[in-house]
Nucleic acid binder design. Structure first.
Length: 781
RNA sequence: GGGCGAGUGGCGAAAUGGUAGACGCGUUAGUCUUAGGAACUAAUGGGGCAACCCGUGGAGGUUCGAGUCCUCUCUCGCCCACCA
């Protein structure tokens, strides 16, 4: 029977009691086995939550409640990733301090989350914009600087004219536009701070194997790091210089008929070149081009020959021409290539435009020809041999570039260094951290490539910590990804002002055991892994990886199949659902919608279905009887077994459906009080409010959420008879009900008695019997 | 162009190689009603009066038996991409 109930009253009652009793506080001194369950913490936007946001939070809530009830001490915290452009842009538009806007947004988010009954330990709440927090973000930067993993560079970087700030490669869409504002990103030479993430490329790649992550996320990371095995080969030039090229195909060296340098290549500036004006013009023209224009694969190849200079092919001594062309990228490999038009499509196109020789050196069978002593050698064997012969080096290169780490915006962590005329870059002494963001009149970017901080002279002008002379503070700030690259560690020890994290506590809680989120397959996870490995190297953390298991979630679309957005007016606020249908119904529905990793459209009808289920549970005590039939006991224990397995593997949809099946059958058969209470415990992680209420109504004093999660009794879960399908010649012809342990003869005899089967057996002899007990009987006639 | 996934009813989806479509939504019929977008009962992949036949994107294959394994192919999604 459905039994409606006042969900709002029940939810309010228990949410208040839980908070008052500190039920969800993590015990840092517990002797229980630890488990760190973490959500990707949200950016508290002004829009508030829509019903899609809590999906992951519900999952971690179910999982951590389940684990707590299974005897684990669970660390399950929440915090705010609150630096970044949206807050700043909001502040500019509405003329309020970003801090004020962020505080307001956080209060709103927190209230929305509270209505869903999550079991977060709020005493560990963190906020990346809190100076006590970003003190340690700055501390990490100084440590990186100490180890030469942070450096200043003047190379051209991505500049977004819309946001008026430099960006990392990771912040660009694949079409070369800014992921925030959609502007076409330009290349602009400017001073910036860069982190040597490439130093960790190999470790980030190989340690992926140690992680329990979805394969497609690992693959996305491998793609992003983009390791290519190949060789560096030196080409001598006729003017005495040497150009080093990177190639993955050293076996084709004999087919290299010209050399191409990136227009930005440093040697280009140093050559005495006959057609220097033409070359300069081309270099200039390249600078003007956006990344999109330059990397558009379909367009005709352009370039300029460096006249008066030839290169010598080290394989055969041939003199070959040298070009600059924009299809060669300065920041990949060595910024120079040997061109093999016969075996590379791009080189072929270029050779075609410039009328250069095309020399085939590999057959269709991957065997070398026209390669002197290497003729007949396989490409695989030739690679090493040729590199050795010409004195090259086998090496690897990466698509990944160092991390452009400065932003010319206000709302971020100040980079804690001081520029001194005498001493150069001087780190702010550790004891002076945090370098707090000063108050400013205007947060608008200056547009000059300088941060708004540069306009506050009283803040900028300081004395050099080293020599005491006049110095200027660094006015660039860190990117939004900084604070989120280590926040999981702060949850372990959120109020420590002496260390980033206490080593004892770190050993107890790290790493994150289960990490849940979506949307950040590459950036956040790459950056966080990089910082974690660095923190490992300097002894702050004890594990080589931060997140052992990752569960990637699929989003919830609006009912119309589009993304929920203000623009489409299709946003559903969880507060409204909580009011109309109840938090438990919302939670059950979001877990039931489909596989956790699937993106599924919201369905109000589906939600009502979940609500009906919750209401049936509310009426289930009316079916409690003194002696339940064996069938009901069996059903309970099978349900327990399945629900436990499903929660463990994040298959929440089938966990819910299993419980639905149980309720359906228990309503018909009746169930004992003990089975009823076991079921309440089983459902408690999904519907914490109602189960708590029913638990109390059943006469219990303590919370259901500290009860032991039910365990299946395998003996009681066993069926004694089972229906199995019967096939004749592999086609289904009926079914028989037999004992689970029935032998083959019994099964065959039962099949012969079954009318629907028997008619196929008439006048035929059984040649072969395939009998899989409990599964299938197949008779071959 | 390269890589990784995924294709099952009207919809979200289940299914250690063993009666495909559990569970939920929707739909249909009925019951009860102070007529409501409530609840309950039953039916619900397609075709056929029926016995039966056909069905997991398509074509082959392995197997007593294939949604599941193998080969080829089509479509969609995601990631990377003038990356040498």
């Amino acid at each position: 029977m459905h039994k409606k109930f006042d969900s709002q009253a029940i939810e309010k009652k228990w949410q208040e009691r839980w908070q008052a009793s500190g039920l969800y506080k993590t015990d840092g001194d517990s002797n229980k086995e630890k488990l760190f369950v973490l959500d990707m913490f949200p950016y508290p936007s002004g829009e508030g939550l829509h019903v899609g946001h809590p999906k992951g939070y519900i999952a971690t809530d179910v999982y951590s409640r389940f684990k707590k009830m299974s005897g684990f001490e669970v660390l399950h915290p929440m915090g705010w990733d609150a630096f970044g452009l949206p807050a700043e842009n909001f502040a500019i538009k509405h003329k309020v301090h970003p801090r004020v806007a962020v505080e307001k947004n956080i209060a709103n988010f927190k209230a929305q989350l509270a209505h869903l009954g999550f079991n977060y330990d709020w005493s560990r709440e963190i906020n990346t914009t809190d100076p006590e927090y970003y003190k340690w973000t700055q501390w990490i930067f100084l440590k990186l600087l100490e180890r030469d993993l942070a450096y200043e560079s003047h190379e051209p970087i991505n500049w977004c004219p819309g946001c008026q700030t430099g960006l990392a490669n990771e912040d660009l869409e694949s079409d070369g536009t800014c992921e925030r504002c959609g502007s076409v990103v330009e290349k602009k030479p400017m001073r910036q701070w860069v982190l040597k993430i490439t130093e960790y490329a190999d470790r980030m790649l190989s340690d992926l194997d140690t992680l329990n992550w979805p394969e497609h996320i690992k693959e996305a990371q491998r793609n992003w790091i983009g390791r290519s095995e190949g060789a560096e080969i030196d080409f001598k030039l006729t003017n005495g210089e040497v150009v080093t090229v990177f190639t993955t195909r050293p076996d084709t060296l004999f087919g290299a008929t010209y050399l191409v340098l990136a227009p930005e290549h440093e040697l280009v500036r140093q050559f005495p070149i006959e057609n220097i004006d033409e070359v300069k013009a081309y270099v200039e023209a390249t600078k003007q081009k956006s990344e999109i224009d330059r990397t558009n694969a379909g367009k005709e190849k352009t370039g300029v020959e460096l006249k008066g200079i030839k290169a010598v092919n080290p394989a055969n001594g041939e003199e070959i021409p040298v070009f600059i062309a924009d299809y060669v990228l300065a920041h990949y490999g060595t910024g120079a290539i040997m061109a093999v038009p016969a075996h590379d499509e791009r080189d072929h196109d270029f050779a075609h435009v410039f009328g250069l020789p095309i020399k085939q050196v590999v057959t269709d069978d991957d065997v070398l020809i026209a390669s002197g002593e290497f003729d007949g050698v396989s490409t695989e064997d030739a690679k090493k041999a040729i590199v050795e012969k010409v004195g090259g080096r086998m090496t690897a290169t990466y698509r990944l570039n160092d991390w452009v780490f400065s932003r010319q915006r206000y709302w971020g962590e100040p980079i804690p260094v001081i520029h001194c005329e005498k001493c150069g870059v001087v780190p702010v002494p550790y004891e002076e951290l945090p370098v707090k963001l000063p108050e400013v009149e205007h947060y608008e970017p200056t547009g000059t490539g300088e941060s708004p901080l540069a306009t506050i002279e009283s803040w900028v002008n300081v004395s050099c910590p080293k020599c005491g002379g006049p110095g200027k503070r660094e006015t660039n700030t860190m990117p939004q990804w900084a604070g989120s690259s280590w926040y999981y560690l702060r949850f372990i020890d959120p109020h420590n002002d002496q260390a980033l994290v206490d080593p004892q506590k770190e050993k107890k809680w790290a790493p994150v055991d289960v990490y849940v989120g979506g949307d950040h397959a590459v950036r956040h996870l790459i950056y966080a892994r990089f910082w974690h490995k660095f923190l490992y190297d300097i002894g702050v953390v004890s594990t080589i990886e931060p997140f052992m298991r990752l569960e990637f979630l699929g989003f919830i679309l609006a009912e119309d199949g589009r993304k929920m957005s203000k623009r489409w007016g299709n946003i559903i606020n969880p507060d409204d659902i909580v009011k109309q249908n109840g938090a438990d119904a919302l939670r059950v529905y979001e877990m039931f919608m489909g596989p956790f990793e699937n993106t599924v459209a919201w369905s109000t009808n589906g939600l009502v279905g979940a609500q009906r289920f919750v209401e049936r549970v509310n009426g289930l005590n009316e079916h409690v009887i003194d002696d339940e039939p064996l069938e009901a006991t069996r059903s309970l224990h099978k349900t327990i077994r399945k629900v436990r397995e499903d929660i463990e593997s994040f298959k929440f949809n089938t966990a819910v459906s299993t419980m639905m099946i149980f309720v359906n059958s228990a309503e018909k058969s009746g169930l004992s009080k003990s089975s009823y209470e076991s079921f309440l415990k089983l459902l408690a992680p999904f519907a914490p409010h109602l189960t708590e209420e029913l638990w109390e109504a059943a006469g219990h004093v303590g919370s259901i959420h500290v009860e032991n999660y039910p365990e299946a009794d395998e003996e009681l879960a066993k069926d004694d008879s089972v229906t199995i399908g019967v096939q004749v010649n592999g086609r289904s012809r009926g079914a028989i009900l037999i004992a689970v342990d029935a032998d083959e003869n019994t099964a065959v005899e039962a099949a012969k008695r079954e009318v629907s089967v028997a008619k196929y057996l008439e006048g035929a002899s059984i040649k072969k019997v395939i009998y899989v007990p409990g599964r299938i009987l197949n008779l071959i006639i």
